[in-house]
Design a protein around this nucleic acid. Structure first.
Lengths: 340, 340
DNA sequence: TTGAAAGCGTTACCAA
DNA sequence: TTGGTAACGCTTTCAA
């Protein structure tokens, strides 16, 4: 079927082993032979068979990436960019799998990557519990968790801090004088939602403000923020004076809901987003938003993974457990409450 | 290092070949033996070595995906979702590569995927010219172009029709009575920009409106639409009465620029977006936008690729060349020009 | 500097 | 129904 080393060897009139050495830039090949081999290889359009190499014992030069795939569209896009930026230049292929937030597909992904003998993995989905990760640890397959932690599993991870982000946002509003702050979240069991809620409550506590369940709006899909927020702002009395949106994308429907209720931002209601996407400064009014280093998280995760793969002293290393601190970018969507 | 078939054979007390047959659900294995083998495999936590299988002649069950990676964040995210949705369930791994809009990285990606003996490829980046594609054709490696066509290369492709989309948007504005329509585009050489420009001009011609170069705003990065559009709307006389934004994402800064100029939408200026992202109905005012079937494009491309890989009659097939028609969703951001 | 041969893990063929 | 053996394409060791 495809051109093999034997074909190249035959054409260049030398043995297979010499051909291999010539193509792999070994020193112990005469220039004359090397030139002949290279020419033959080019002529035949030869490409080394990667599977054969790996079977022979070489590193697979392949990494696995398991995505959760139910985050916001931009989240995945931004994170994977950080990852790819380092993969190809370093000669690594990346096999991307999606769990679609399901344990079954996630296990299938692990299975696939295991069969492919990947050199390492980046994991953004841990729905199936710790077993898969324990297997990786036991078999010394390097991996880095992205935006996830698993209780009871000691390993490398890089996370952005949604808890702290929500805390910063809430504190900012509290400092401005807001006391009734609507908090828009996703599915209660989703780790980023759990983290946000904790940050929100931490800020409230710090300011001695009592937590009210009615001020938390959970939506099965955080993107559908229009109706939940519209209803909440219509019904809750006294009306919240500020909103913590799940992220910048969901802020757009939130702004629309407020506009449809005839509420002015920030005069009547303050709004804070999260992720500080590139469009945040261009919303009307420019959105106060918490910047999370998502691209950085992807890039750093990949960097750590590559280090672990190349440096062969896993024992001498501690775990790299990195929490990327968010920053609050204050713009014009937040102000003291009107009534104050 | 890792557990092999020999280890399983040894533990279950049968030969390697019988072990292989037992694990591969062959019929000619006694139930007693099969049970013993399965138990041993489980006990040892055996996973088949995919590279060995492929070397032996099996299909690699791996697909390659080459992304351009300079499109809008959402474009890649939406398209790849359509792709992944079919990959894992069908047992295919996807190796994702990025060209970053560069010919060199694109060639490197081709090289990588070739070495990995992928069963097929989905390609959204053709910066390096037709040579790579010709190689695939010559070697009967199935591939499908996504959102790209290459002059002189006959092959399968699925594209969304940005030309038609821009045409529909422009026609809508022309029908409303607009004659001075600002057209926001990206790098002149980028295929989607070329297509959009052609659609714009086609609509103008059809309405007998002369094309004016000053009404076309090229930006190196289409996302930075604020200043180019602000300046254009400030300087061009008479002022355009409508804007064709590059896509929905760039619409956000466009709306801001108009707002900062004190221009009202749609009274003073009409705006049309493209892609009809989920947030389009929630912009203020709700955005008239051209819906492009990007998710469908990814999914369909994958479907065609899988068909080509499984059905082994490439000759009897014609090329599948699919152009997904856009539709215009009219909302409140467009109206007849104020002056009419 | 070159070549022969072994072996990576698997499957398939052929014999038993 | 089972087992031995060869072969996939490559790299590496050892000998020449």
């Amino acid at each position: 079927m495809s051109v093999t080393l034997r074909d190249v060897a035959r054409l260049s009139g030398v043995s297979v082993s010499t051909t291999s050495r010539a193509l792999n830039d070994r020193l112990d090949v005469s220039e004359a032979v090397r030139a002949r081999v290279l020419k033959a290889a080019q002529e035949l359009n030869y490409t080394v068979n990667h599977q054969a190499r790996v079977l022979k014992g070489a590193a697979s030069k392949t990494l696995g990436l398991i995505l959760y795939n139910t985050e916001s569209l931009t989240f995945n896009a931004v994170m994977t960019r950080g990852i790819y930026d380092l993969a190809t230049p370093n000669g690594y292929s990346v096999i991307v799998c999606n769990s679609n937030a399901g344990a079954e597909m996630e296990l299938q992904a692990h299975q696939m990557l295991r069969q492919n003998r990947v050199d390492g993995m980046l994991i953004n989905s841990v729905e199936s519990g710790p077993a898969s990760l324990e297997y990786l640890l036991d078999n010394q397959i390097p991996f880095v968790l992205l935006n996830r932690r698993v209780p009871g599993i000691e390993c490398d991870y890089v996370v952005v801090d949604y808890q702290q982000g929500e805390y910063l946002a809430a504190r900012h509003l509290l400092e401005l004088g807001h006391r009734r702050i609507l908090c828009q979240l996703g599915i209660p069991s989703h780790p980023p939602t759990i983290a946000r809620l904790a940050g929100y409550r931490r800020a409230l506590e710090e300011f001695g403000v009592e937590f009210a369940q009615e001020l938390v709006v959970h939506a099965s899909n955080a993107a559908n923020s229009y109706h939940p927020v519209l209803n909440a702002m219509r019904q809750i009395q006294p009306r919240p004076t500020a909103i913590l949106a799940y992220n910048d994308e969901t802020t757009i429907p939130v702004l629309k809901a407020l506009s449809d209720l005839g509420l002015h931002i920030p005069k009547d209601v303050s709004v804070v987003g999260q992720n500080d996407l590139s469009f945040a400064p261009f919303l009307i009014p420019p959105l106060t938003s918490v910047a999370q280093s998502i691209h950085e998280m992807g890039r750093l995760g990949m960097e750590i993974l590559l280090q672990k793969i190349t440096h062969q002293h896993p024992e001498s290393w501690g775990w790299q457990q990195i929490v990327l601190a968010p920053t609050l970018n204050i713009r014009q969507s937040t102000a003291p409450p009107h009534s104050v």
